[in-house]
């Protein structure tokens, strides 16, 4: 197998690992919310709101990711990575951090995972 083919195979495997990690995080969040219903209801105020003042308090890497997501509306990690010029896996990690912080919502449509700033 030539080098290019090897690299493509590695990238394909990394993408699959990322998808599996996304699913694990998604399931964990679901279970966490299910087990902590009371806590979630209490936290469901404006503490998680990603308004512009909250954006300013985020560390630079998350602020860049969140700003790109604001621009895009609903987006995959790939589209965010295109704007921020970072690796898709890195952006996926940052976006999932924002999901865990309650700032961003995550939706799975078929094989793709979409993120959007939560304003509900």
């Amino acid at each position: 197998m030539c080098d290019t083919a090897k690299i493509e195979l590695i990238l394909k495997n990394l993408d699959e690992i990322n998808e599996k990690l996304d699913k694990i995080i998604e399931n964990n969040n679901h279970n966490h919310n299910h087990n902590n219903n009371d806590i979630s209801e209490k936290e469901d105020d404006h503490g998680h709101t990603l308004d512009v003042m909250t954006l300013l308090t985020l560390p630079e890497h998350l602020r860049t990711t969140a700003t790109a997501l604001f621009e895009l509306g609903t987006a995959t990690a790939d589209s965010v990575a295109e704007i921020t010029k970072k690796e898709r896996a890195v952006e996926s990690n940052y976006l999932n951090q924002l999901v865990r912080m309650g700032h961003v919502k995550k939706q799975r449509l078929g094989r793709k995972v979409y993120f959007l700033v939560d304003d509900k």
């Binding site: 404006h46 709101t49 990603l50 308004d51 512009v52 003042m53 909250t54 604001f70 621009e71 509306g73 700033v117 939560d118 304003d119 509900k120």
Partner: peptide, 15 residues
């Protein structure tokens, strides 16, 4: 207006 509203405003300004 509350902070959720401000998030919506920011999205609308971008649009």
């Amino acid at each position: 207006m509350d902070r959720k509203w401000q998030t919506k405003i920011l999205k609308r300004l971008i649009n």
